[in-house]
Design a protein around this nucleic acid. Structure first.
Lengths: 231, 231
DNA sequence: CGTTCTGTTGATCGAACTCAACTAGTGTGG
DNA sequence: CCACACTAGTTGAGTTCGATCAACAGAACG
């Protein structure tokens, strides 16, 4: 990465904001002039339907870009709230425009990251449409563990998801009661173990199979991007 | 739009390819070096799960960009096939890179379009997770009509979806049998009428309510984009 | 030290699936 | 030109998965 690109990235991270668990960062239909990068903690984006039910669209981890849809929409299409105490960096829309103009390679990388998220979204869509409740719950566990491990490569088979069963339900389109039964079933089948909020994968291969899990980790390919611009 | 931008757009549309109904354009895991713009016809992107079931991720209409995920992934994460006889324009990845570098404003517009599609995807996700079978079927009908109307503003309440009930089922996570029953129910409730493949909306307001439909048409906001570059 | 949140468990209900049979339209090859 | 096959749609009967309702236990918390 060139010095100019590094500088541009740092400019995005000047203004920090702290959020407590449960706090809202963006509300649906808010005017969308700000974008964010999650610095620390875990957040979620979601929508509330007419009948009051909630669908969690995405879990957010440090490094994730929040509210990129502000590129196209004047109002936020989804809400964002903190699942744990979190820190975000806020920046204004025009700053991104300047990057698009001055640092095309950097902007293309942002777009590429967004594509990865889009693919994750389609995987989730396929899961919701076509897999069993047990598979969806297993899938959330795998996703969270994998994201956490990207932050701490030393993380093994044991971790604390930091999600309530209701939150897992809202992500998978299930009720909290049924999530509970599915977790219990995964436990009975010796795929996972649980103790006070901590989950341990006992047989990850079998769990991945039960979840219909597709591994997309096979490295990105950004080689086709334009060469770095000078200075 | 500046002349240079127009020229760049035309360069994307030099190579045309024709597809018959049912023909595959991209297969999951294909090497992804090409991108496409749909010129005429209707297509779909989908994935096939381990158990053989299909989840349709997105219906594609003229003007839509196909396989933008090639920006990030070396292999296609989803398949694309023609729902009717179609024409696409193919171009190579590096051509998009050149646009990113030389026409930042144009590239940002591409990104904005992609965001719109991302939002549509999240709306679909919420529908799959949290709405009834009837709502999902109604939602597909509304979506297809609205997209068709964007191409032909004269289109009224009567149209030919050009989808089989099985395809509607694969888009909504339902079986073809149940889609049939839901269509019949919408008919009995006098929300729609059907005759030999043609669908007529009898009470669009009530249909939209039944579908939990969110209208995102409220204009885009691209005003913050950088100024056009010279020539 | 009550109140609230989260998790657990049982009983019952209902939406959507599965399986099966049948019809109508559309080719299509002999 | 017809017989056969194939696709798409329709309908009924029975089953199942996950929702709903309800009750309670423990932890967290002000």
């Amino acid at each position: 990465m060139s010095p100019a690109e590094t500088a541009a990235l740092h400019r995005l991270e000047e203004r920090e904001r702290t959020l407590r668990r449960g706090a809202a960062l963006v509300r649906e239909n808010d005017a969308a002039t700000e974008l964010f990068i999650l610095k620390r903690g875990m957040m979620m984006s979601f929508v509330i339907l007419d009948d009051g039910s909630r669908q969690i669209l995405r879990f957010l981890f440090p490094g994730d870009m929040i509210a990129l849809s502000a590129i196209a929409y004047p109002r936020a299409p989804e809400s964002v709230a903190a699942l744990s105490d979190s820190v975000v960096c806020a920046f204004e829309r025009p700053l991104l425009a300047r990057i698009a103009a001055d640092q095309p390679r950097l902007f293309a990388a942002v777009v590429a990251l967004d594509q990865m998220e889009r693919v994750a979204l389609t995987d989730r869509l396929a899961g919701l449409g076509r897999t069993s409740a047990k598979a969806r719950v297993a899938s959330v566990l795998l996703e969270v563990r994998n994201r956490l491990r990207r932050l701490d490569p030393a993380l093994g088979d044991s971790f604390v998801p930091g999600l309530t069963q209701e939150e897992i339900g809202d992500a998978t389109g299930l009720t909290a009661v049924h999530v509970n039964r599915m977790l219990r079933q995964l436990e009975e089948e010796r795929l996972i173990a649980r103790e006070s909020g901590r989950v341990t994968f006992l047989d990850e291969a079998r769990l991945a199979r039960a979840a219909n899990h597709v591994d997309r980790l096979s490295g990105l390919d950004l080689s086709w991007l334009p060469a770095p611009t000078a200075g």
